[in-house]
């Protein structure tokens, strides 16, 4: 950084080099900034190309709706895996959504400023715990708990609610997977829902409280309706997290390729299918294409949910600024 006076020819030349360099980088940056889009497109197209062999051999409907999974005999039905994914995710959401919503409301509307400042690092910490650690916890704590306490207790009502039928003697079940997943996605959903609640203008709350509403009535009639689109988006984002989660679920869900009938049945979600079979797929024809189709199916499900919730959240969180 020499040459403080701009009037000397020397510095005029330097400046022009500098701005030429700047212009050069600017031009190159257009190509560089396409990298994320390029990556997203190439992941999608790589999976698409690699799953072509099986998509050509079998119609898509037969693959997605077939329930027989016998790779040796050339039967590839994804229905057990897709339904397993959906079961586990739905159980996780049923547990996580009310708890997360109430926690987010508490933190945003009731908690003191000090607690609010403390909670962000804590949620970050929870979100940072790797999924295998949740898996270990699931194997050691949740599995036995489901096996010895929850399953015997809930199956008393199985003649009224068939989804509580306990025919699986182990604790490795949809419920165990769903519970572990619920704890995993909770910090994520709470953090985003909290952020969404914070965007609701303070004046709205003040107006409601001034009319004599209680704090809960304020939440119910003023804050929630204003925040509802962002809240739904944050829940959907949590849902797509749950769909793609592999290790923790794989360790506790039992991995039996069947169409589940009760929350105590074992299931075999799509990510677990991919993780468990990748090593051995090479020897069987079409097997690798089948696993690629499984990845593609998973990716399409996650992408659809994500696109919707990202665009909604972007709109909601930007209104604040």
């Amino acid at each position: 950084m020499s040459g403080f006076s701009l009037s000397t020819p020397q510095s005029a030349v330097t400046r022009s080099y500098r701005s030429q360099f700047d212009r050069l980088i600017r031009r190159m940056f257009w190509a560089f900034s396409a990298l994320p889009l390029f990556l997203a497109v190439s992941i999608l197209s790589a999976l698409w190309v690699k799953s072509q062999p099986i998509l050509v051999a079998h119609p898509l409907a037969e693959l997605l709706l077939g329930s027989a999974w016998k790779p040796q005999r050339g039967e590839f039905g994804f229905l057990p895996f897709i339904s397993g994914t959906i079961w586990v995710t739905v159980v996780a959401l049923v547990i996580a959504v009310p708890v997360c919503l109430l926690t987010a409301i508490y933190l945003s509307e009731y908690a003191s400023g000090r607690l609010q400042r403390l909670i962000k690092p804590l949620l970050d910490l929870l979100a940072a715990i790797p999924s295998v650690i949740y898996g270990v916890w699931g194997v050691l704590v949740i599995g036995p708990w489901v096996q010895h306490s929850i399953a015997p207790f809930l199956s008393q009502w199985s003649h009224i609610f068939p989804i509580f039928t306990a025919t699986n003697p182990t604790g490795y079940s949809i419920l165990a997977g769903g519970m572990v997943l619920a704890v995993m996605i909770a910090p994520f959903m709470i953090a985003i829902a909290y952020e969404v609640f914070q965007t609701v203008p303070l004046g709205l709350r003040q107006a409601s409280l001034a009319l004599g509403a209680t704090r809960w009535q304020t939440v119910k009639y003023a804050v929630l309706p204003k925040a509802i689109s962002g809240i739904v988006a944050s829940l959907i984002l949590g849902c797509s997290r749950a769909l793609g989660e592999t290790m923790a679920v794989l360790m506790v869900v039992g991995n039996v390729p069947q169409i589940p009938r009760s929350i105590f049945d074992a299931a075999y979600p799509l990510p677990a299918l991919i993780a468990n079979n990748y090593g051995e797929m090479m020897s069987i024809p079409l097997y690798d294409a089948a696993l690629m189709t499984a990845s593609l199916t998973l990716l399409v499900m996650v992408l659809g949910l994500n696109l919707f919730s990202i665009l909604t959240l972007r709109h909601v969180l930007r209104e604040k600024k």
């Binding site: 994320p36 990556l39 984002l237 769909l243 592999t246 990510p271 990748y278 990716l299 996650v302 994500n306």
Partner: peptide
């Protein structure tokens, strides 16, 4: 695109 990449499950990155 970055947000979309962020949301892709790690098993898909592995595959």
């Amino acid at each position: 695109s970055l947000d979309i990449l962020w949301g892709i499950p790690s098993i898909v990155y592995g595959a």
